[in-house]
């Protein structure tokens, strides 16, 4: 039964390699994009940490900066 499903009338190697290639490409793109995102987020947190209190206060007044920091701490 399992052999029949995998063999797919002799086309199994073609079908499964096409699906595997697609899923591998998805995984690779997802991981690369995620790692780029985390890298930028970490850079932002590090830069924010190095600001003096006055500059940090000014930066925090922007909502988007607050959201990036909140998102980074949640991750």
């Amino acid at each position: 039964m399992i052999n029949e499903i995998i063999s797919m009338n002799g086309y199994g190697s073609y079908v499964l390699s096409a699906f595997s290639f697609t899923l591998l490409s998805f995984s690779a793109l997802y991981l690369i994009t995620k790692s780029q995102f985390i890298k930028e987020q970490d850079k932002f947190v590090a830069k924010f940490g190095s600001l003096n209190s006055e500059k940090a206060k000014s930066a925090k007044s922007q909502r988007i900066n607050k959201e990036i920091l909140a998102d980074a701490t949640n991750n």
Partner: peptide, 26 residues
């Protein structure tokens, strides 16, 4: 849906990149 997911992650990365440059200018 997958392309939407990658788009959202990439777009967020681009926005954070811009904000990183903004912090440099402070």
């Amino acid at each position: 849906l997958f392309s939407l997911l990658i788009f959202l992650m990439k777009y967020n990365t681009e926005l954070i990149k811009i904000k990183n440059k903004g912090l440099d200018r402070l």
